[in-house]
Computed example of a mutant assay.
Amino acid sequence: MKRLIGMIFILAAFFTLLTGCSSEKTTDKKDDTLIIGIDDKFAPMGFRDENNQIVGFDIDYAKAAAEKMGMKVKFQPIDWKTKEAELSSGRIDLIWNGYTITDERKKKVLFTKPYLKNAQVVVTLNDSNIEKLDDLKGKVVGLQSLSSAADALDEAPIKEKIKTVTEFADNIQALTDLKSGRLDAVIIDEVVANYYMTKEKETFKVLDESLAPEEYGVGVKKGNEELLNKLQKALDELNEDGTAAEISKKWFGKDKVLK
């Protein structure tokens, strides 16, 4: 019996030690590192370059903010359709990759102040006869699934006249199908469209009419006002010391960051 009791005490002490080590490891990771959920095919906000390195405006902006906060940063590519679920589960700390502020999303996450203006635009092939939104009548249109492009189209009168709306996991797939002729047009973020126009201006054109103006913000888990306030303070400091403007000029050629 004494031997059995002794073994129980030893096992209890062992599991207590394991629990303590596990807890310490988790706390260190949470305290020191911001895990940021991104769509790694969302140029020029966050994407992989020719060396498979994650780069972009939001990437540089997040790194600069993390440095202000005295933290490390890790970029975690996620399925954009599950971004809010990833945040609420705690698998990521922030959604930061051209994340549009909407009333519906405000019910699910906390947002920083807007930092960049955007709009949803229509991209077609250069030789297309589509010149305005009404020309989408009877056409096959593509967009990223569960994106603000889908929200903007849902609010547009032309939605009911479009023949088919095809959803894709990311914008690259949608633009690839447009180029191959499987789509007539793609609804996409203006900042993304402008980036591809610099790369393939002989292939694509952007309609003058846009669907909806919008603004980007960083998403923080509901209830974590402490992180939100700390992050917002860092972003404000990046505006004040000119760092945000320099990052913007690097990626957009001018200062587009909202003050």
Rank of each mutant, 00 (worst) to 15 (best):
D31R: 05
S128G: 09
A152V: 05
A212E: 15
K108Y: 14
S148R: 01
A64C: 00
A85M: 10
K159P: 09
T19M: 15
D58R: 00
A85Q: 15
A43E: 09
L136I: 03
D177N: 01
K199F: 04
N239G: 10
I38T: 01
E246S: 04
L183C: 06
S23Q: 13
A62N: 07
K72W: 04
M1D: 11
K25T: 11
D31F: 10
L238S: 01
K25L: 14
Q76W: 03
I247N: 08
E24Y: 10
K161E: 15
F47K: 05
L116Y: 06
S145A: 14
D134V: 08
K222Q: 06
D154L: 15
F14E: 10
F252W: 12
D184H: 09
I162S: 05
S248K: 04
D241W: 09
V123T: 13
G138H: 04
N229P: 02
E246K: 11
D154P: 09
F75G: 06
T203N: 12
K108G: 09
G223E: 11
L18A: 03
K139C: 08
L11P: 01
D177H: 13
F204C: 07
R3W: 00
S89E: 11
N194D: 14
L94Q: 13
K163W: 10
D32S: 12
L178P: 02
Q120S: 14
V257L: 12
T243I: 02
D127G: 01
G223W: 05
M71F: 02
E225P: 02
K256N: 13
R48K: 13
L175H: 13
R182L: 01
N118M: 08
F9L: 11
E240H: 04
R105P: 11
K139H: 12
A85D: 14
K113W: 06
D154C: 13
W251T: 04
V192Y: 00
